[in-house]
Amino acid sequence: MKHLLSVNDLNEKDIYKIFEYAFQFEEVLSRPIPIVPSLKGKTILTLFYEPSTRTQTSFTLACKRLSCDVINFSFSTSSVLKGESLLDTVKNVLKMKIDGIIIRHPVAGVPNFLAHYLDKENIFVINAGDGINEHPTQALLDAYTLYKKFKDFRNLKILIIGDIKHSRVAHSDILIFQKLGCEVYVSCPYSFLPIDFEKTKIPYLSDFRKELGKFDCVITLRVQKERHNLSYLPSIREYHLLYGIKKEDLNKMKKDALLMHPGPVNWGVELSYDVLEDKRCVILDQVFNGVVIRMAIIFLLFQEKV
């Protein structure tokens, strides 16, 4: 693993290695001084061309807990607004001696473009979400959250509800859970299904409620108002009625099933307010797991560099 651009950069062994390190880092975070000096003197740049709270904070914290210096770049306060291109920004940043770049960009494939350009410079690239393509660190933390609960992925049934077409989380989640041996199902309005979806052979449920009792994990996705005008949906209220998870849906789920959401939640759309108090709703555990998973990824990418 030289860069982390897609879940497809990882084999099963890599994924479990990341989990093992993440688990060690959980212990580190429980210490009175929750920081290790492993990456002293290294520098990472986070380039976020899209808004983010969780992911950018989580990456920044992960760097700091490893003693890695981190520079945060956000598009709204940068020269991008003056018309600087991505490549120009990167060329300038290169002169500042950076070891790795974490990038989020609204255009799919931008992290691959960067990695291609930076490969010979021995600078790694981590994809923190590229358009509608992928979000591999989210998939890893989702899988880790599940791993901590079940310790074994075989025969687990996972239902993903939401905008399968435009969700990078859905794309990365499907890749990782299939790789780990789970059975993945999806449910959403037809307009949220990618073209030729039937070719993937992933089962589509038009009425998931009938089968809710068989899933070990339900992942709900954010309705991304910024990626499409709402022409895909008749109304948000209808989406909530048909695809939103409510307390009575939790009652139909297994006692040990998990309910996840990558955040930020549109409360009253993907989830109703009353699900947060249920212990099966692990949205906030996902946030904690995000930090240790990202520590593990950064640590292992540096190890790979030497």
Binding site: V28, V36, P37, S38, F302, E304
Partner: peptide
């Protein structure tokens, strides 16, 4: 391992 002064050794 996380306190070594050389990543090379950890690798």
């Amino acid at each position: 391992s996380f306190y070594r002064d050389d990543l090379q050794m950890i690798a």
